[in-house]
Simulated assay, not measured.
Amino acid sequence: MDFSGKTALVTGGASGIGLACVEQFAAAGANVVVADISGEGANAVAAKLGPKGLGFGGDLADPLAVADLFDLAMARFGRVDCAVNAAGISGNWGAFEDFPLEEWHRVIAVNLTGVFLCMQHEARIMLKQGGGAICNISSGAGFLPAPGMPHYTASKHGVLGLTKVAAKEYAARGIRVNAVCPGATLTPMMEKSIGGDAERQALMDATVPFGRMGRSEEIAAAAVWLCSDAASFVSGESMAVDGASVCR
Rank of each mutant, 00 (worst) to 15 (best):
W93M: 14
S90N: 13
N136M: 13
L101T: 14
G158A: 06
A86H: 03
I108E: 07
V84W: 04
A146G: 06
F143V: 06
G91D: 09
R124D: 09
P145L: 09
G94P: 00
P150Y: 05
L117P: 12
E97Q: 14
M119E: 15
S155K: 04
L127M: 14
T153Q: 03
G142M: 05
C135H: 02
N85S: 13
C82E: 03
N85K: 04
A133W: 02
P150S: 12
P145D: 04
R124K: 14
R124C: 05
A109H: 03
V115Q: 07
V107N: 07
P147F: 05
M126Y: 02
A146Q: 13
L160C: 10
L127Q: 14
K156H: 00
Q129Y: 06
L127G: 03
N111H: 07
P100T: 06
A141E: 06
I108H: 05
A141K: 07
V84P: 04
L112T: 02
I89K: 05
L112Q: 12
D98Y: 12
F116D: 08
A83S: 15
G88L: 06
D98W: 00
V107R: 05
G132R: 04
A123T: 13
M126N: 09
I89G: 06
N85R: 05
G130T: 09
G94V: 08
E97L: 13
F143T: 03
A141Q: 02
V115K: 03
K128V: 00
Q129M: 10
E103K: 14
A154E: 02
E102R: 13
F96G: 00
P145V: 06
E103M: 11
G132W: 01
V107F: 08
W93N: 11
I108Y: 06
F116H: 13
H105S: 12
F143S: 13
A95F: 12
S139H: 02
H105R: 15
P100W: 05
F96S: 13
I137N: 02
L127I: 14
F116Q: 11
L160M: 13
L160W: 04
G148V: 12
G132A: 08
G130R: 14
H121Q: 15
G158K: 01
M119I: 07
N136L: 08
Y152K: 01
K156Y: 00
I125K: 05
A86P: 03
V110A: 09
Y152P: 04
P150A: 10
H105Y: 03
P147G: 05
G130Y: 12
M149D: 04
Y152L: 08
E103H: 10
L160S: 04
K156E: 01
I89D: 02
A133K: 10
A86K: 05
A83I: 09
G132M: 03
D98K: 15
A154T: 14
G114I: 10
C118D: 09
A109F: 01
F96Q: 06
E97Y: 08
I125A: 11
S155Y: 00
T113I: 08
I89H: 02
A109K: 05
A154L: 00
A133Q: 06
S90V: 15
V107L: 08
Q120A: 12
G94S: 09
S139F: 02
T113L: 10
V159Q: 03
L101A: 10
F99H: 07
H157K: 01
G148P: 07
A154R: 04
I125C: 11
C118N: 10
S155A: 15
S139N: 09
E102T: 13
D98T: 15
L144G: 00
K128H: 11
S138P: 06
G94Y: 02
R124A: 09
I125W: 01
N136E: 09
P145N: 08
